[in-house]
């Protein structure tokens, strides 16, 4: 009786709201709340102790956190730029292919088809200082007679992870930029040739401005992706050696499940999300500007 008094739109939307509340709103609110408690998985009752901003203050004043934060930003910057440049190069090469372009495009997507966990294992093997392919190759070629400790030296370890990340995701850039190249009209390029541009100038003044929106879309997607990097790192180094490859989310994961300090981990996670949002906003701004520049109608 009572239900039937609700209007039809409310009634029809109710299931959707219910599902959203169950899977999004409640967990979100709960995690947000728990970031204001000293909640530990081992002490369930600690969920009901309200400690205000103490977790956040601890996070902000924690050197380890800021190191991980800074390292994540560094990792993000290096990985995104490398992927961007390699992806652009790859897309330009594939777009020049007269024959077999379709095949190349499919091949290009292969790295995206592997689970990051498997990529992690594969690169862990490749970079192994003892039996790894890379050291083996370097030694066979006579470039070095040492066993380079790829995953054991702190700096080399982050580099190795970056290589794995770049390998697995360069194709995201390549494919999006290739889409831009294929959609691009030929005439302005020909006009640029006639106007006196060298091939390099044509790229700089005509092709690149046209591709920028596509690059920024890829940047946005990938910045979110890289900022939550966890799997590859977890497999390859697990944040080691001596926390030298600790990124935001491996730190969050360790705090939450290793130390069981769920409240603290949630506080960190909210920080990490703010970082992601900032990157997204930044790239969307760039994207909007670039789109407006080329007068895009999409």
């Amino acid at each position: 009786m009572k239900l039937s008094r609700l209007s039809a739109p409310v009634l029809l939307l109710f299931p959707a709201f219910l599902v959203l509340a169950a899977v999004v709103v409640v967990p979100l609110a709960l995690s947000f709340y728990s970031s204001f408690t000293p909640f530990r998985l081992t002490k369930p009752e600690s969920l009901y102790v309200f400690i205000g901003l103490r977790n956040y203050i601890t996070v902000i004043s924690s050197w380890d956190f800021w190191v991980a934060f800074g390292r994540t930003v560094l990792f993000l910057t290096i990985a995104l730029n490398a992927e961007m440049l390699l992806g652009l190069g790859l897309a330009l090469l594939v777009s020049k292919a007269v024959r077999g372009q379709r095949l190349l495009r499919t091949l290009m997507m292969f790295p995206m088809m592997f689970s990051p966990v498997l990529v992690g294992f594969q690169f862990k093997f490749l970079f192994n200082d003892n039996i790894g392919l890379i050291n083996n190759a370097l030694q066979s070629l006579g470039l070095t007679d040492q066993a380079i400790p790829w995953l054991i030296n702190g700096n080399l370890a982050l580099f190795s992870i970056t290589v794995a990340e770049v390998w697995s995701s360069t194709s995201v850039f390549a494919i999006l930029i290739l889409a831009g190249l294929l959609a691009m009209p030929r005439d302005p390029i020909e006009a640029a040739h006639v106007d006196g541009c060298t091939p390099l100038q044509t790229f700089r003044y005509v092709t690149w401005p046209y591709l920028m929106p596509f690059a920024f879309i890829a940047m946005t997607i990938r910045s979110l992706d890289v900022a939550r990097a966890y799997d590859i790192v977890k497999i390859m180094t697990d944040g080691g050696p001596a926390k030298r490859t600790e990124l935001l989310w491996t730190l969050v994961g360790r705090t939450a499940y290793g130390d069981a300090r769920m409240g603290m981990a949630n506080a960190m996670a909210y920080f990490a999300i703010v970082l992601s949002i900032l990157f997204t906003v930044y790239f969307f701004r760039k994207l909007a500007a670039a789109r407006q520049q080329i007068g895009a109608e999409w």
Binding site: P185, D187, P188, A191, H193, V194, D195, G196, Y205, Q293
Partner: peptide
């Protein structure tokens, strides 16, 4: 670029990211 010619295309082939003035001055800038 070495032939000292100009061409007008059927589809106009303007550079979409440049203003009219920049479009017209582009070859001189290059």
């Amino acid at each position: 670029r070495a032939r000292n010619i100009s061409m007008v295309f059927q589809s106009y082939a303007l550079y979409p990211h440049m203003t009219v003035g920049e479009n017209m001055g582009f070859s001189l800038k290059i």
